[in-house]
């Protein structure tokens, strides 16, 4: 598993570059053009990151999570779920930036190689922001009645999050 994880990126990079070279693409210029786009993307998400880091930190620093959610601590202990991950798991389907901000906070307090740090990493990578994607795609073509789209999307998220919990506690 570990070796597989390590090999994905280098293999992928060499394959992409090799294929580009083989197809006689000007790979260096293409890279620069793409990198420029990446820069624009990052600057475009900057305001929402500021907004979310602001809100998330007020929420986390108020100690609401350990003190109020802490009342259910026994239950969370029973199922081996760290309390601090709950806000992230709940916010993941709604806002990618919000869960990113929480993950950042978890990395600062517990480090990326702690159990909760790994859990947060798997969680962030394993699903997309369902509610945002649904809103964007449906509103682009004027769909008002979304029928069973949201429940099925959230059900998929629930499975993803559950498997993320299971697999992290199994592997690490």
């Amino acid at each position: 598993m570990n070796i597989l994880s390590k090999i994905v990126i280098p293999l992928f990079v060499i394959f992409v570059i090799f294929y580009g070279f083989y197809k006689k693409v000007n790979i260096y210029d293409a890279f620069l053009e793409g990198a420029k786009e990446g820069l624009i993307i990052t600057f475009n998400i900057f305001p929402s990151i500021i907004a979310m880091v602001f809100a998330i930190n007020i929420f986390l620093d108020s100690n609401f999570v350990p003190e109020v959610l802490g009342l259910f601590k026994n239950f969370f202990n029973l199922v081996h779920i760290p309390l601090e991950i709950m806000p992230m798991a709940l916010l993941r389907p709604i806002s990618g930036t919000a869960s990113l901000a929480i993950m950042n906070d978890i990395f600062i307090t517990s480090g990326p190689d702690s159990y909760i740090g790994r859990l947060a990493s798997v969680l962030q990578g394993c699903t997309d922001t369902t509610i945002y994607v649904l809103a964007l795609y449906f509103s682009s073509i004027g769909i008002k009645k979304t029928r069973y789209a949201l429940p099925v999307g959230l059900f998929a998220d629930l499975i993803g999050i559950t498997v993320a919990f299971l697999i992290t506690s199994l592997l690490f």
Binding site: N2, P112, R118
Partner: peptide, 17 residues
């Protein structure tokens, strides 16, 4: 944040997705 093995979460992530 100084992870010793940043990419170790790739495979678990793929399985979860």
């Amino acid at each position: 944040h100084g992870s010793a093995n940043p990419s170790e979460i790739i495979m678990p992530g793929i399985i979860a997705t």
